[in-house]
Design a protein around this nucleic acid. Structure first.
Length: 589
RNA sequence: GGAGUGGUAGUUCAGUUGGUUAGAACGCUGGCCUGUCAAGCCAGAGGUCGCGGGUUCAAGUCCCGUCCGCUCCGCCA
């Protein structure tokens, strides 16, 4: 029977199949023995169907009695109606297979956890037995979805005249950016390749080569610490176009996400997507990827409180050049005294805030809370008006350096939204964040570093500021944010070698470093480079959003742990001396 | 590098102020059962309380160290 032809997926049998002679293959998900009749649910990735084995077929019944969960079986028989015993909770619940022959193809040890949805096994156990976890329908459906999305993606961009092109995995380590994963060269002792953090330079070289429109679904590697939405290797939808403006890119990519949301979720996205500058986002929401499924804006009250209160927390922050911002919740009743004294300050503290001040406005306009008594009646009225809140409101204040104020209030905004039930998975808020600064100052290294990457073009109207005021220069860079997740980011690139040289100089790279690290690239720029730009989408994060996963591990088939290990294969691991010797490597003890 | 949190049966968990033989559910094994579909009923087996050290008459429980999972900060152009 191993050679019999499978009729179809187990989850697709319906009443229209009744009386068909069929062959069913799959894993035993459950068996229910009623003495004279025995039911077996046989699963594959399409679902499961119920086999019915009866004592009057002695060989079938004898085999059925031996079955255990996760054994692999083959059965032939006839699709029959369940008559009065249909089960509407199951897709195949109208029918069952009357088994005429049954064969065990593989026995299975008892698995370390049950293979069914809603399983609560520990993450480490699930990762160790990933191949078993992947049998669970709620996980395997994510990978069918992923396949669907990659096909839709290729189709969309090929239809828009893109070429799908490949770039090297063994490439060159560059300064700037994330820590590289290095690969030692056997042939060139003491030298190393780097795995790509992204194909950035190669895709620009494709533009210089006249490829015009490039796309790739490619793996990228960054040796940095992990998060729920960050793995050391991840998949990017990588794009680059010649002779393109940001407006054209927005239009193309809005078309892409609209197509994906429509095809996969049946959801119509309102186009065009809302836009906001980086400066607006930081001012209003305290972060560069605001979740706009809900409002709850932050309000800068620095100038309102300056000179108007003796409240030490505020005055101390002002004296050292800091800011005071407020997050006003029109209805604060969801927050207890314990939240205000403990939970919320702890959240704020993870982002550097030394404390959290708060005030409630009771019915009748009476203010209470630790801050209230330090605020005059006039100031209270002014704040309430500025924040647009009245009776029942809760106001959270953070006073500190601007970066701390923004980060901690942005965090509290999300905590509050979660508590208030505003993080709806059925709601989609798309946003382009534009006009990022070119550079941010690296206090540790005492130099400017590129906010996006060193190939990002300044806005044409900003070039003249490069010499005088690099911190103020705005870039032609943009991020696409969905429900507070940075889904993708890109920029118009520098296509003139003199401008590129200037930017490298501002980043503190010497001519020698530029020649050594980017020599081929700056040479290429001199041979007729078209204006070009592009974007990269995090495909894994896109999948997280589409399937509603809370972790990248649910959309990456064989993911790594928070310490970048694979619990299944036990990578990374030591290698033997002989391998190291070939690579001219000695491990420091 | 830092902070938080978790680790007890195959699995998920409970385990009080340190005190008798560490429990439950599911799973597993055996038996019964002809309409279940989270099948049901009966019986049974199953424990290095992550690991190491310490305090104590006595440690799953307290202390110190360490390993591993998860979340977050730093980091991630």
């Amino acid at each position: 029977m191993e050679t019999a032809r499978r009729t179809c997926g187990n989850g697709v049998y319906r009443s229209g199949d009744i009386d068909r002679q069929v062959a069913v293959f799959g894993w035993v998900q459950a068996y229910r023995n009623h003495g004279g009749v025995l039911f077996i649910d046989v699963r594959d990735r399409t679902g499961f169907v119920q086999l019915r084995c009866e004592t009057d077929r002695a060989a079938v019944y004898a085999t059925a009695l031996t079955l255990r969960p996760e054994w692999v079986v083959a059965a032939t028989g006839k699709v029959i109606s369940r008559a009065s015993n249909t089960n509407s909770k199951i897709a195949t619940g109208d029918v069952e297979i009357e088994v005429h022959a049954l064969e065990v193809l593989s026995e299975a040890q008892t698995p370390p956890f049950e293979i069914k949805d809603g399983v609560n096994a520990n993450d480490d156990l699930r990762l160790q037995y990933r191949y078993l976890d992947l049998r669970r329908p709620e996980l395997s459906k994510n990978f069918a979805a992923r396949s669907h999305i990659t096909q839709l993606t290729r189709k969309y961009f090929i239809e828009h005249d893109f070429l799908e092109l490949e770039t090297p995995i063994l490439t060159k380590s560059t300064p700037e950016g994330a820590r590289d994963y290095l690969v030692p060269s056997r042939v060139h002792g003491g030298q190393f390749y780097a795995l790509p953090q992204s194909p950035q330079q190669f895709k620009q070289l494709f533009m210089m080569a006249g490829m015009d429109r490039y796309m790739q679904i490619c793996r990228c590697f960054r040796d940095e610490d992990l998060r729920a939405d960050r793995q050391p290797e991840f998949t990017q939808l990588d794009l680059e176009m010649s002779f393109v403006t940001p407006e054209q890119l927005y239009e193309l990519l809005e078309g892409y996400v609209a197509m994906v949301w429509k095809e996969f979720l049946g959801v119509d996205i309102a186009l065009p997507v809302q836009r906001m500058t980086y400066a607006q986002a930081m001012d209003t929401y305290g972060c560069d990827k605001p979740d706009l499924r809900f409002e709850l804006p932050l309000c800068d009250i620095t100038e309102t409180v300056r000179g108007a209160t003796e409240f030490r927390v505020f005055t101390a922050a002002l004296e050292s050049g800091g800011r005071v911002k407020a997050l006003a919740l029109p209805d604060g009743s969801a927050f207890t005294r314990k939240d205000l004294d403990t939970t919320l300050p702890q959240e704020a503290a993870t982002h550097g805030a030394k404390g959290l001040a708060w005030a409630r406005i009771a019915a009748g306009g009476e203010w209470s809370g630790p801050v209230a008594k330090a605020l005059s009646v006039e100031l209270r009225a002014e704040l309430a008006a500025k924040l647009g809140v009245g009776d029942g409101a809760l106001i959270l204040f953070v006073a500190d350096k601007a970066a701390v104020v923004n980060a901690s209030l942005a965090r509290l905004r999300l905590v509050a939204a979660e508590r208030l039930g505003l993080l709806l998975k059925s709601k989609w808020a798309f946003l382009w964040v534009t006009d990022f600064p070119m550079f941010e100052y690296d206090d540790g290294e005492k130099r400017w570093s590129a906010m996006h990457h060193p190939f990002t073009s300044p806005r044409p109207d900003q070039v003249h500021l490069l010499d005088s005021e690099p911190g103020a220069v705005l870039a032609q860079a943009y991020d696409l944010v969905v429900n507070g997740t940075e889904l993708g980011g890109g920029s118009i690139r520098i296509h003139r070698s003199d401008l590129q040289a200037k930017v490298f100089g501002l980043l503190g790279l010497s001519d020698e470093q530029v020649r050594d690290k980017f020599g081929f690239f700056v040479d290429a720029l001199k041979y007729g480079t078209p204006p070009h730009g592009g974007i990269a989408f995090g495909l894994d994060r896109l999948m997280m959003l589409l399937v509603g996963a809370d972790s990248l591990r649910d959309v990456i088939a064989f993911p790594k742990t928070a310490r970048a290990a694979c619990l299944m294969s036990q990578a990374p691991c030591a290698v033997d001396e002989r391998q190291l010797a070939e690579l001219h490597i000695a491990v420091a003890k």
